[in-house]
Design a protein around this nucleic acid. Sequence first.
DNA 1: ACAGTGACAACAT
DNA 2: TATGTTGCCACTG
Length: 125
Amino acid sequence: MEKPGANFYEQVYAVVRRVPRGKVTSYGRIANILGHPNAARAVGYALNALKDKPDDPTFAPVPWQRVVNSQGRISIVNREHGANVQAQILRSEGVVVSEELKINLKVYLWEGLNLEEIEEVLRGG
DNA sequence: ACAGTGACAACAT
DNA sequence: TATGTTGCCACTG
């Protein structure tokens, strides 16, 4: 077993790994899927913690770039060569990101998970 | 045990 | 549309 609290992070990662290439979702939607409707900030915190994890080879990569805020806007400021890193990665996946770092959720919003899939995630998948 | 922190979200101006 | 404010939560020292 793991310590209780850390499980939330793993659940967040499990959900994000299900977001397909070319689609995006929001911090709040992930929190909702996990049954914590008001834990959007914690989701962001969990993704931020990824910076310390990639070293572990048993840790499957998480497509963190597919998570944006409820307005469909990128919430990170990481820049490289004058362009937002997250925006560049998303564009490489086929997602149209405007100059203002906005994404049309009407087009690129991930449908989410059905009940069965959610239970699977909560079980640790 | 407890106050501080952050990749949010909803609401009020 | 653009700020500013408030509520939330898991994690950390």
